[in-house]
Design a protein around this nucleic acid. Structure first.
Lengths: 164, 164
DNA sequence: CCTCAATCATTCAAGATCTGAATGATTTGT
DNA sequence: ACAAATCATTCAGATCTTGAATGATTGAGG
């Protein structure tokens, strides 16, 4: 899961540490910590239950739903350097969760697709992610959750959502 | 600013990449990406304006407001290994933003405090963080923002907030 | 056709980052 | 006093990322 640079690393052992009071009126810091907590907790549980981590899960979800037409496009969606996707996909392919096939229209590109096993793992991973999400935003009503989702998707997406 | 382990890395160049549609109904992934984006964008701007990064800013805020009584306590609040705080504080001390002094009550510990310059930088950094935050949650009303803050602070904190 | 530039996946080496154990100083409990 | 625990710090090994280089393939132009 990661964006690009720079994530800060949460200490796995420190995940249950008390939140600094400095975060009480600094939403930016709180959002960063929340994202990290979800990433760490999610990776732990995904690893234990399915043998994949958060980055793998993100890749599976994007491959399934965005159907990128090249690894470069996938890399962009994942906010990763193309070189980083190679190892990620090698592992997922070795596990039988994804398949790489050359694009017949442009043999430089490889099109990555989910296998049946990949779809199964994704479905189970989604359930785990939903649990972790629920813990992170415990107390939010369904309507509030949907509102948050729309806002975080950004103005462009908000418009699209309104239209849909 | 990182947590510890496991952050995923956002590609700095990919920050403005389109959000995968796979995130449209996966709030956990969206929250992770949002946190990473705030961390990356925040670090960029803090670096340019003040010469510090997100981790430095987080440390300054925590030192200022939580007044940790040892570097170990600071490390816990930052979700970092104690060893990681050494270099972080060395740099902040060299920049004249923080001061380390031995605790007279327990000379094993060093108490870290903000210098006058540190307080100034923190104030400016807070302004930058507020800008980045505003961009991330653009469209949220003030009431909604406060609600989000309370929820992310967790049930324990929510109770405290209600009491206050 | 044939060449040149661009694009793609991949590899590799260099650099940055993190973790974990080891060290020396200091405190606490017995 | 002594032993065990705690603290800041250092260091080396492991991990992870980046950036340039490579070989294959495509598209454009002449």
């Amino acid at each position: 899961m990661g964006v690009q640079e720079h994530q800060q690393h949460l200490d796995p052992s420190g995940l249950d540490a008390p939140l600094p009071t400095a975060f009480h009126d600094r939403l930016a810091l709180l959002l960063v910590r929340t994202g990290d907590r979800i990433a760490v907790r999610g990776s732990e549980r995904l690893e234990a239950a399915l043998g994949i981590d958060g980055a793998d899960y993100t890749a599976l979800a994007v491959i399934s739903q965005d159907a990128p037409r090249s690894q470069q496009e996938l890399a962009q969606l994942l906010c990763k350097a193309p070189a980083m996707c190679v190892g990620l996909l090698d592992a997922l392919e070795a596990s039988g969760l994804v398949a790489r096939e050359r694009d017949p229209k442009d043999r430089r590109r490889s099109i990555v697709t989910l296998t049946a096993a990949g779809r199964e793992v994704l479905a189970k991973a989604d359930a785990i992610a939903a649990e972790v999400e629920a813990e992170a935003i415990e107390g939010l009503t369904d309507a509030e959750r949907d509102r948050l989702l729309a806002v975080l998707l950004g103005p462009a997406r908000a418009g699209a959502a309104a239209g849909a």
